[in-house]
Design a protein around this nucleic acid. Structure first.
Lengths: 218, 218, 218, 218
DNA sequence: GATGAATGAGACTTCATTCAT
DNA sequence: CATGAATGAAGTCTCATTCAT
């Protein structure tokens, strides 16, 4: 009974079917997620089949369905895993720049985000394209929105150093801008990545948008 | 043979299969594109079937395939049609702001772009997600890149009024940022659209990024 | 994608997609081949649909495609299975006539070949018509040519008993002649089969062509 | 309303829908047949579409259907046209060899038939494969059988020179053998055509089969 | 718990034929 | 008469998911 994606979003069961208690199970789940990430990057969401994921993970489809109720759940799990990494990275930079000028923390954020998205861009593009359709607003809230929320909190703390009219909206925009620009650059202006032009321009954009530059700065 | 998308990108035949000579045929082609736009917005690329497109267009599948060699070609045609509209809009704003401060033109661009993408965001998201897989770099180059190129040319003309380090990269970033932020806002912060917060923040972003604000502003 | 035969020959994938490990799977494959043989004989290659094959085999199309990458591969598999049978038959006759006059072996060959092709002529005609288009020269080479090669080897061994100018070409001709004449007879002169006239005339033809008849024989 | 070949044979309307009275009509019909012959040779019966035939013939599909009630009728017309040519050739050879030894006439027949079938073998294979399915026994009776009948009549006249047990069956076999061997040679032993080995061996076969060689001949 | 064979709805695409212009 | 746009049934093949072993 092949289910075919016809409707835009569905109320996808997104939790793991069973919590892997045993070590072996954890390894299996990780193998599945790794395999799915690769295939997602190579073939996109629709081009990735659950059978292929199982095969590359070295397990049977049956086992895959023991841990994930359906294909969508795999993607959501990948997004969660990825978001965890990004948030951890943010925390590191926040901690590191604790008593230094805010600009430096921003430098760190931008470089790190560009690096992350430049590293496995096809995977992130696949996620960005698939997530909204998979589960509506909610799961993306887990992904991109978690980053937005964390950064907002941080910048509100250091509100005094900023000159922005609408901080919340600006953070929202900046987070999406950095991601979208990086993805677009990978596809359509790849030379701007290694030579640092993209990162520099994004850095400049963020600094200006937050009003971190001295008036008259270049 | 039902061909299924397995590989990431393919060399899609993108031209019309036959040029509609008779008036009847032109109506058919337009009806197909309109129907496809609707369905794309409602169900995404993979969720849109050629039979559904034909049915909503009020023609038979056979007719559809008389004008488009495959499903991909329909999407490319839609993108082309859309890009034509955006470019025309840009030209209007450029002409209108001919002897006025550059900031005004930028205001115009941003508001217009936000409006365009806010109007049919699901369609544009579907296009953005589908085009790279459909036709690799080239046809998206026709779409987003045409806008970038046009704006670059315009801003180079008025280079003197700007204060930007890397104009080309910045324009590239800004175009993608406006689009991505608008799409994300539709999904995850829809209230920022009608109350103008999104447009205001994006406007601010662009103006600052191009160094159009007087030092000491805001 | 409904792929339709447009080009004359294609590089058809001919191997089984997966080797059936379980007993259940072997039964499935055999059922598919049996069903396909029937339908091929009844409706020809183009008139045989994969859905019909699956249905008559009592399995789902999905199962069919689990073992055969496409429709062509089924035909090739049938041809291989058939060729195996013919070769085994030849070997039997060769062994049986080991120390008897060559004419007797030839009698055996001709009667057996006529019997085989008369038994399921529509199937063999369908194969003969479909194979060249399906797989070019190669796989038919597996079929008809395997018979030619075996017979050539045998007759070269007993060269001394023959009076033929060009043995290789003659064997080639005779093999195709027996098959073609039998098929044609089934269609256009069916009465010559049961009364033995066809077999007798073919027998005579072969014996004369190989120079096996005593001078002055009738 | 696409009709699809599902049943093995059908009661095909085979007559021309209208007899071309005007010169222009004759030209059109000839153009259609020429185009169909080419496409048949290139793509086989199922690979040949009526639209393609019309296009290559330089007329519209509508016009094609003015002269032929359906696709099958085109094939039948081609077969008829071809058979006319072969019969004329036979008559020529018969006349030419009127008061010469029968062997010479046979030489002529064989060489001519081999030449004809070697010249456009894909066309003839396509015809041979398609005709039985198109209209059952009848139309082939027009094609191959007309040759058999003519040769039988001729050889019966010169019965005295032959030494064959069952002349009718032998002629039937020989006609099909020459055709089948030539087709097979084109596909699987093409080198035997230009160097004359195929013709020589077939010639030998026919002469021996008819008992035209002196006892003890080679 | 793991396996992998089986399922079957449904996707894309073709093409013989008709008929309004 | 000619044209060629339109038709739509039907064909091949895929893939998420289940369940007997």
């Amino acid at each position: 009974m092949a289910r075919t994606r016809r409707d835009e979003t569905r109320s996808a069961p997104k939790a793991l079917r069973k919590v892997p208690k045993q070590a072996r199970a954890k390894v299996t789940v990780a193998a599945i997620l790794d395999a799915a990430e690769q295939l997602l990057a190579e073939h996109g969401f629709e081009g990735t089949t659950t059978n292929a994921v199982a095969e590359r993970a070295g397990v049977s489809v049956g086992s895959l369905y023991q841990y994930f109720p359906n294909k969508d759940a795999i993607v959501v799990a990948i997004a969660d895993r990825f978001a965890d990494g990004v948030l951890a990275m943010l925390d590191q930079h926040i901690a590191a720049a604790a008593d230094r000028p805010l600009v430096e923390a921003c430098h760190g954020f931008v470089r790190a985000l560009v690096a992350i998205h430049a590293e496995r861009p096809r995977l992130h593009m696949a996620l960005a394209a698939a997530l909204p359709r998979i589960a509506g607003i909610d799961p993306l809230a887990r992904y991109q929105a978690r980053v937005v929320i964390r950064l907002r909190a941080y910048l509100h703390e250091r509100r005094a150093e900023l000159r922005v009219a609408d901080l919340d909206t600006t953070v929202f925009i900046l987070v999406h801008a950095v991601q979208a620009a990086t993805h677009a650059a990978v596809l359509y202006a790849p030379e701007t990545l290694p030579d640092g032009r993209l990162a520099a321009a994004l850095d400049d954009l963020v600094v200006r948008a937050l009003g971190l530059c001295e008036p008259g700065d270049r």
